[in-house]
Design a protein around this nucleic acid. Structure first.
Lengths: 237, 237
DNA sequence: ACAAAAGTGTTGAGGGTACACCCATGC
DNA sequence: GCATGGGTGTACCCTCAACACTTTTGT
């Protein structure tokens, strides 16, 4: 690793923002490009990373600048760096994904970009750069991760029913419907949900409202990491 | 995303190379830095990415230049970009991890760097930069991934016994020993192993030799991805 | 009374776990 | 024959998966 000057690629941070509003599909937040390469086409929010900011911070900053959305769960996804993926030259993109509950965050549009909109994940427009590929990877990762980490709760309101939680899982995983009885048993057995009340004014038996209990979850994680392992290995096939 | 010039960070690719020789520990390939920051200290193989090469290709190139090791399984791990992680300025590192069977690849040392060596994973020297953190993440990822993807075979010779495979899993996961009967049943049930012969000249009943059947594994993956899912969700706690 | 969604009891099949045992080879 | 590691039979128990059923609200 010599110390003389090297040619330097540009580095951007992009964010795949998944939104959920209780419906039957996931939404994706896109911006319409206002300038130069791919002008007028839809793209992921993102931009060049500043010299003194962390990657995740840069992703959140660009997201807020371009879409007004802030304060959400974000995590690094993958770094895309194939030469030629950006016509402007060598641009390496550190892609992130984020989860947001649409009822909590406005579909805002105060923006650097010319336009901002939520698209249904199964009806995306044509996308700039290799952003279609990035979205595909993010979707795969979300589907995989939601099965073994309680990240889905980021997409729900603070308080929710088991029916809503199940609908969310079915939406993310793209499965028509799985058994209600077994879903409830499994979720409640984990102990990570906490009862916080009952529904009001619904035209059916009011459901129990739950909240995700972060503290309990962390305790369980620690127990698992310190104790003996349960299932020795599993190729999940 | 404006088109005017931005200040650009440097981008490096680093590789966490895990090696296995059938013993009771995993090895890690490190180089001793020959120059400037952290001179004389041990570090991960890696270096600045070229302007016209893919990230993974850059990782493999640097690895071969610095250690002589080539032709191995490599995958992107995470991108480390906290400001201040490198005293030379803003350096973003796209970290990779790689797996290699030590009997197949020489512990070579023809090198750009002053020295190259394999260290036991539990007896690492002090490391340059934030490389200790990178190694920690790579280890966590390896332990997690080996449970649901057949990447462990990269660490074994072409043909191996179930005893050797079990020893490898115990080594990676750091578990004293799990039940032989159940390990065998589970592994063989997946159908991804293929019998290829028997051991010769061993002072005990000769074991059946197996080979990992990539084609069968791919078929199973496709079946899973197209068919209905089995376990709906599982927080693994 | 009825619709709608919440919530429960139960049962058969299959996998996880554990323990005990037999088998083939070199020395 | 004995040490060594390879390989198998089986039994208990818990979880998964599926189905049928009861409960509570608003209209």
């Amino acid at each position: 690793m010599p110390t003389y000057e090297h040619p330097r690629p540009s580095v951007t941070v992009d964010v795949v923002v998944f939104g959920y509003d209780g419906g039957h599909d996931l939404k994706l937040l896109l911006i319409q490009r206002g300038s130069d390469p791919y002008q007028g086409q839809w793209a992921l929010p993102g931009g060049f990373v500043e010299m003194d900011e962390d990657l995740e911070a840069g992703a959140l900053r660009e997201l807020e600048e371009e879409t007004g959305v802030k304060d959400l769960f974000v995590e690094q996804l993958y770094t895309f760096g194939k030469p030629g993926r950006d016509p402007r030259g060598r641009v390496i993109s550190v892609a992130h994904y984020a989860l947001v509950n649409l009822s909590k965050h406005p579909a805002a549009a105060a923006s650097d970009a010319s336009e901002v909109a939520w698209f249904s994940l199964d009806k995306l427009p044509e996308l700039a750069f290799d952003h279609a590929e990035i979205i595909k990877l993010a979707t795969t990762r979300l589907r995989a991760k939601v099965r073994y980490q309680p990240i889905g709760f980021e997409l729900l309101p603070e308080e929710f029913t088991l029916g809503e939680l199940q609908a969310l899982y079915e939406t993310i995983l793209g499965v028509p419907e799985f058994n209600k009885r077994n879903f409830r048993t499994r979720i409640l057995r984990t102990g990570i949900l906490e009862e916080v009340g009952r529904q009001q004014n619904v035209a059916h038996r009011p459901a129990i409202l739950y909240r995700f209990n972060e503290a309990t979850y962390q305790q369980l994680v620690e127990q698992r990491d310190s104790g003996v392992l349960r299932r020795a290995l599993d190729f999940e096939i």
